[in-house]
Each structure stands twice: as structure tokens, then as C-alpha cells.
Design a protein around this nucleic acid. Structure first.
Lengths: 328, 328
DNA sequence: CTATGCTATGGAATCGATTCCCTAAAAATA
DNA sequence: TATTTTTAGGGAATCGATTCCATAGCATAG
């Protein structure tokens, strides 16, 4: 590994001058610059990032904490983040919690120790301990997918998306609508989407039977189970179901097919997330597109602006788009 | 940020002693160790990774290059890699090529400059330029998903998997079997799976009409298109189709459904990859499970062993498992 | 002709660890 | 008791950059 010292010697200048060429700062004569540049290209020299980081306290690395890499939402966000960061000479240090909440906090510490310049946290909750930790470490953090007071975040308008989707069902004449949700500790997916649903029902004067509301986790089987419970327990069978994720909807769909219940005739169905597969389901699933990749880009832009103390918008709520397909 | 110097002062010892406690190396009296440890926990001190890396030439970071994070295979591999690395105090530096071959080479260089201790390359090809670059950089590289002479790799037995799957169809009485492949530059997915298919056909004395073989890319639409071409162009209509990925199979399935062709009665279908969704399709799709997460773990184990100059197996070919479902 | 400012460059300190080498006390051995 | 070995711990160099400060030549202004 060739170092700045060797480059300096080979070019017949001091390390200082090489550094000046590298960062083009300070005074360097055209002649000296040429010599240095020649040696650099000849040797393929590149400065040591560690030495640089040690001296400058900047690592050009952004930590990304995510709950899982195996579902589309976080994958797309990371793709967006990656694109934006690469364009700016930054790299991603990945921290996968595998859905372990504790690890979100652990990784915040770990990434700080790794001296990342910033952290993008694809959050599944906004627990006070998490928020405290975010404040405690001095590294800039952008939360994606949740809103939280005082924090930098990029999130989606979950409430209105759910509200709109519910309204769509109501317009189509449905009055008995079931809902498959998740734990409300996830404020965006669990709480806000449910609130949007409930408010839309209420403001249309529609009642919601308690049996119509089921809670699952983030997987397909869970949607299957929830649909089963809805159909088993409800005294009045709903004619439509909203699931807060596409995977839950897919699970619900599989149960309906098992039972020979036709979609959308006997049961209309919609999900959230615009999973690629939804387009190819039979029938194609109505869903909400959140443009996750864009969210990732935004988050990256925000954190870079913050790091480089440029102007940035602290809190961003992105738009959504209903994708209406044959399942309704 | 508290440094080793401050810790030393606070504990009334030299930096050397603190370093000894940190790395428990050399002689340190029980008493001194206690004092140092106390100060460390009190201050929450953690040594600077950059200073450490600069001195030791080790970064405890492994670069992972992948073609996309948005399909299940690489996601699962990264999950496996992540688990194994985290257990050993290593981190992942992510480099997403977004399917751009050139970037694979670029990132090898970039990661070297970042002084990663090793690189895991989820490869889509084994072009000579790529292999040369791997040899050129002195960092240990493990390839996942492709085999290549002299290289460290973890891959799957694509040939036999395809062979077995084809044999399964033949046993079920199919004689006219179509095949949806991909570019053979991808040796594993493109070449070997096709070779396994063709050899199984030949050794059973079955002919393969050229129209039965279509080539797509790695997306669902492409499978749709391929299925259309097969049915349009073939003089003898096949009764079964093997697609080299689940996504291609899903595309094929969607075309079949559009045309009202029943699966498996009129057309049996199988894919590769054990995508989660395949279980919930209608009918559930027969596929090949490659245990990608395990592959990731293996790759991580290999590279760590290499780095720490322990024993390791240079080339690993993992087992597969046919998941036979109602689509055949 | 001297003072000032700009250009060009290098020396040396610094970032925060690790580690080689040295010294000295304590313990073991002769 | 004298000598060797083990234990304990510090000084200082080092890793590879950046950056402050000093110096010196040369052009321009006064």
C-alpha cells in the first residue's frame, strides 16, 4: 500500500504539497501539481480513509439500521439511500436488527463508535428509550417510516392513505369493512392506518364490529390467520377487508381462495405497500404505493445536508398513490 | 469523545496499560486493571475504530457487493452474512450495483480503498475482467452464487437441481417440456440450469424443440412474455415449463391465467429460489430451495477464517431441496 | 529603496490507538 | 546471598493522513 509519503518523495515535494493537490486547497504551482498528479496516476495511489477519518473526524460513511432486509419496503428504501449516497461519495454501513427492537438501540451506539457521519434508521417504533438514545448520541439521525417530535424524519401520510382507501370501499357501496392491522407500537403502520380506517368509517356513519378488526404480525401466514378469524367470529360477515400490508393481504387472499370465496365479488380486498407481486396476483391486488425508494433518497439528502450544514427540511411527509386493481 | 489518553490519566496509568486492558495482552496487575475498567465503564469509553484500523491495518468491516437488494436471493444471503459477521464483531459495508456489471469491478476497488478486511461478492457473472480484478486487489474475496476456478466461493448445485427438477417432470409423464432461461453469462442461473435441463431431456431420449426454449431477464414481465412466445411459436405445445427463477415462473403463471390455461392440468410449472410467495400462489408453485441464508453464513465463515488464517474450505457447493407443490 | 502582499513550499504537530523496547521490582532459582 | 526469571508498567515510535505555522521569493505599492 503506497502512502502519501512515498508519493511526496517520488514527486520531489513534501507531504503537505501532495495533500494540497489531493484536496486542492492552498497554493500549489501548476508544475508541482502536474508532477504529483502524474505520480498518483502511475502508482494508483489513493489516500487511506482511516488516516483521513482519524484526522478529520469524518468517515464518509452513513449507518443504516433496518428491521429486515427481506421485505420490499426496507429494501427499496435502502436502494434509494444507496443511490443518493453513492452519488455523493458516501458508503452504507448496514445494521440489520432482524426485527429485534433492542438491537435498534444497540446499533445506534455501535454505529456511533464506528464514527459514522450520520444514521438512517428505518424504524418500526418510536419508543421513548429509542428516542432518548437518538438524542444522546451526537450523530445526526434521520428516521424513515415513523414520525417523532423534534426528530428528523421522512415518513408517509399513513393516516390519509388509509382514510382514502376506506373511502374508496365505501364509495363502492361497502358498509361492512374488516381490518387486519398490526401492533400499534408501530405508530405508522399499526396506529395511523387504523385511525384512518376508523375515522373514515365513523365519518360515514358506519359501525365497525369488533370481530372485524384483527391484529397480525408482518408475515403472510398472519394474514391468513386473521382472515380466518374474521370470517369465523363475525356475526355480520364483512364484504371488504383492508390489510395494513400487502403480505397480510396476500395471506388473507390465500385463505379466501382456500374457502372458495370470490374476490372481489364476495370479499373485496386491499393492502399497503405496492409489492411487486400484487400486480400479478389473481385478482391483482389494490394497494397503496408509497414510493419507498424516493423516501430513501430523501432521507439520504436530508442527512447529507445536515452533515454539511446546508439547508434541509427537518420533517418530510411524502405523498402516496392508490393503485386500484381488480381486487376491489 | 473521550480518548485513551484521558482514560489513562483518570486511572493514573499510562496509555500502554489501558491498551493492555483493552486487548488483554501483556502484563497488567489485577489492581490496575480494576481501576482502568472502572474508568472505562464510568465514561462509556470505546476506542476509536479509525485509530485502531490505522495502526493495525484491520477494520473489522467486510464489504458486500450485490446486484440488487430487491430480490429475495441476495437479501437472504445478506441476512445470513450479517448474522455471522455480527456474531464476530464485524460490520457490513454495502455496495449495491443495481445490476450494473461495471460497478462490480468499481466497487471492488472502492472497498479495497476503504480498507475492508474482506469482500463477499454476490456475483451475476464470472467475466475474466472481474476475476482478474479480484486477483489484483489483495483483499480476500468470496464469491457467492457462481463458481470460478481458483477463487473462494459458495455456490449451489445448479446443474443437478435443474436435472432433478426436469426428471421429476419426466417421471410425471411429461415429454414436451419448455424452458425459460436467462443469459448464459450468468453461469449458474443461465448456463448450468439449462445444461441440467437439457441433459435430463437427452438422457431420457426426449427432444427439445427450439421454440420451447426462451430467454428472459430477471423480472416477472419477462416470464410473462416468454410464456407467450412459447405458446405462440411452438408447433408442438409443451405440457410443462421450467423457469430458472420464481419470478419468471410467476410471470409465466400470470400469462397462463390470462389465457385460461389450467395449471398443472394443461401446463405444469416450476421455478427456482423458493420465494416466500410461491407457497401462496394459486396453485402453489413447485420450486427449488437453495437455503440462501445458509450460503451467506458460509461465505461469512469462510472469509473470517481466511482473514484470521484459520482452516477453511475454499470452495463450497451447497445442497438444494425440491419443494414439490401443486403446480406440477 | 523599503514595506506589504501574494504565491509556493516545507517542517512539524496532531488525530487516537498499538506495540516495541526498556527499566525496575518481585519472585524463583542457584 | 547472588543471579536469573517473571511480572508490571512506562516512554516513545508508528500508522497515514491534514493543517497550522514559518519561511522565502517575487511582484506591486508607497
Amino acid at each position: 500500500m503506497v502512502t502519501i509519503k512515498e508519493i511526496a518523495e517520488m514527486a520531489g515535494v513534501s507531504r503537505t504539497t501532495v495533500s494540497r493537490v489531493l484536496n486542492n486547497s492552498g497554493y500549489v504551482s501548476e508544475e508541482a501539481r502536474k508532477r504529483v498528479e502524474k505520480v498518483i496516476t502511475e502508482t494508483g495511489y489513493a489516500p487511506s480513509e482511516h488516516a483521513k477519518s482519524l484526522r478529520t473526524k469524518k468517515s464518509k460513511v452513513i449507518g443504516v439500521i433496518l428491521p429486515t432486509i427481506q421485505t420490499e419496503t426496507p429494501s427499496r428504501i435502502v436502494t434509494g439511500v444507496g443511490k443518493e449516497l453513492t452519488n455523493n461519495g458516501y458508503q452504507i454501513l448496514l445494521a440489520n436488527t432482524n426485527l429485534d427492537k433492542e438491537k435498534e438501540i444497540e446499533y445506534l451506539d455501535l454505529l456511533r463508535l464506528r464514527q459514522v457521519d450520520g444514521i438512517i434508521l428505518i424504524a418500526t417504533n418510536t419508543d421513548p428509550t429509542l428516542l432518548e438514545k437518538i438524542k444522546e448520541i451526537k450523530v445526526p439521525v434521520v428516521i424513515v417510516g415513523q414520525e417523532a417530535e423534534d426528530m428528523m424524519y421522512v415518513t408517509y401520510d399513513d393516516y390519509h392513505a388509509a382514510h382514502d382507501l376506506t373511502s374508496l370501499f365505501i364509495e363502492k357501496g361497502h358498509t361492512n369493512i374488516a381490518f387486519i392491522g398490526v401492533d400499534e407500537a408501530d405508530k405508522s403502520v399499526g396506529y395511523l392506518r387504523k385511525a384512518g380506517f376508523l375515522d373514515a368509517m365513523t365519518s360515514n356513519g358506519l359501525a365497525v364490529e369488533p370481530e372485524w378488526i384483527q391484529t397480525g404480525v408482518f408475515d403472510i401466514d398472519s394474514g391468513h390467520e386473521a382472515m380466518k378469524l374474521i370470517l369465523k367470529n363475525a356475526s355480520i360477515t364483512p364484504t371488504a377487508t383492508i390489510a395494513v400490508t400487502d403480505r397480510l393481504a396476500i395471506g388473507a387472499m390465500s385463505y379466501l381462495k382456500e374457502k372458495g370465496i370470490r374476490i372481489p365479488n364476495q370479499m373485496a380486498l386491499a393492502g399497503f405497500g405496492a409489492s411487486e407481486i400484487t400486480k400479478y396476483l389473481d385478482p391483482p391486488l389494490t394497494t397503496v404505493d408509497y414510493q419507498n425508494e424516493k423516501a430513501g433518497e430523501q432521507a439520504a439528502k436530508q442527512i447529507l445536508a445536515k452533515i454539511e450544514s446546508k439547508n434541509y427540511q427537518k420533517q418530510i411527509i411524502l405523498d402516496y398513490r392508490l393503485i386500484i386493481r381488480k381486487s376491489v
